[in-house]
Write a protein that binds this DNA or RNA. Structure first.
Lengths: 214, 214
DNA sequence: GAATGAGTTGTACGTTCGTTCAAGTTCCGG
DNA sequence: CCGGAACTTGAACGAACGTACAACTCATTC
């Protein structure tokens, strides 16, 4: 509070007026793009600045260190992705058949492997890095837990007799399918294989909303 | 062949006598360890040299570039891991029940998340990097294909009516469970959750060797 | 219209990086 | 025991890195 002699403009956290907030957001978006297509190994402050179209010096004003920036980028990603998952499952109701649910999930994965590929790769970069950084691990755990609760509700709606386990299985299958097909361009036959796997999983788990409910 | 003036000792590939091979292997092992606990972002030639207990200059003799080294490390890892998977499934016979199979897989995952955690993290580092490097992508695809064939045979032995799809589902579930639990220390309740998910998956897929076979 | 503070930037610091290489040692066939 | 090939090494190169900061512009307030 009272630091008389200091002329240091650097605060712990910038005040973030409207004007500044736009720039901060642009930096985080740029960072997510760079992480997605060059990896955390290829992530440099200079690369972010170039991607965002800003001078290098600008980054130091909004983020104390590179690690802070990475953490905030991950938080932004999870917030955004949670919304997307929520929206994807909002349409899945108790009137749907197993195949409808499978189709929803197939579209979800297909989107991640094509239009949103950069974002998906960034996501896994974060998840792996979370193995080594407690701050990222906290975000990762919270996000994963929120996801499992959401999917658990959906499973429940679809007549699961063990929603928690089914949520774990579904989340794992989706994550596994994503990872396993990240190194390959997504051709139609691959999409079909993903659809088949999802249909079988959902059918065998007995997830269909048209079942009788108590 | 005939490069008269050149005194360059650097070949495309060193001849690798017994003497040299030991060192090369030590370098690759060191690289795998460093990738596992500092990530590809934290991987430097100096870090590898230190981990291997060798001078920095030694690395240049066996690997033309850092990227070459990473590729060979990945190849080594997939070779080793393929053997491990093969061994893990060698014990799964048509006499096993669904719970036996689940127990095998649970132990497999538990081992990866504890004793072999470094190796598992390195594996996912490679898989993500393969998104950006065609040479790594080739290795990744070949490995994944070999895995699927192996697991498909096992599924077949266990009475699957669609071994290929079941292999894809099983591999995805295992990969997903690994990733989802990498950021968390593996406590007993987590192990139990993994076991439950695997049991349910295998049971619902109808994978049990004691079923009648043609 | 001066003062205050947020926002902005070019530059420069010290460090670490991948790679190269001349000079050396060790090994082994002839 | 000699000659060449395999192997080893420490030092050095330019490039890229994260971070810090003095100097600057701009908007807002009194």
């Amino acid at each position: 509070m009272s630091r008389p002699g200091g002329s240091a403009p650097q605060r712990d956290t910038p005040v973030l007026t409207e004007r500044g907030g736009v720039r901060k957001a642009a930096i985080l978006e740029a960072a997510l793009r760079v992480i997605g297509d060059k990896g955390l190994a290829g992530l440099s402050m200079r690369a972010i600045a170039t991607e965002a179209g800003l001078p290098l010096g600008a980054l130091g004003y909004y983020f104390k260190t590179k690690d802070d920036l990475i953490l905030e980028a991950f938080e932004l990603h999870t917030r955004r992705e949670a919304d997307r998952v929520l929206a994807a499952f909002a349409g899945v109701g108790s009137g749907d058949h197993a195949d409808d649910v499978a189709e929803h999930l197939t579209a979800f994965i297909r989107h991640g492997l094509t239009e949103a590929r950069t974002s998906l790769v960034a996501e896994y970069e974060f998840l792996i890095e979370a193995t080594r950084r407690p701050d990222l691990a906290r975000v990762s755990r919270a996000w994963r837990q929120a996801l499992q609760i959401q999917v658990g509700h959906v499973a429940s709606r679809l007549g699961s007799d063990d929603p928690e386990t089914d949520a774990e299985i579904l989340l794992s299958v989706v994550a596994g399918l994503e990872i396993d097909h990240l190194s390959t361009p997504l051709d139609p036959s691959t999409t079909q294989a993903i659809r088949t796997a999802l249909r079988r999983t959902i059918t065998r788990l007995g997830l269909r909303g048209d079942a009788e409910r108590p």
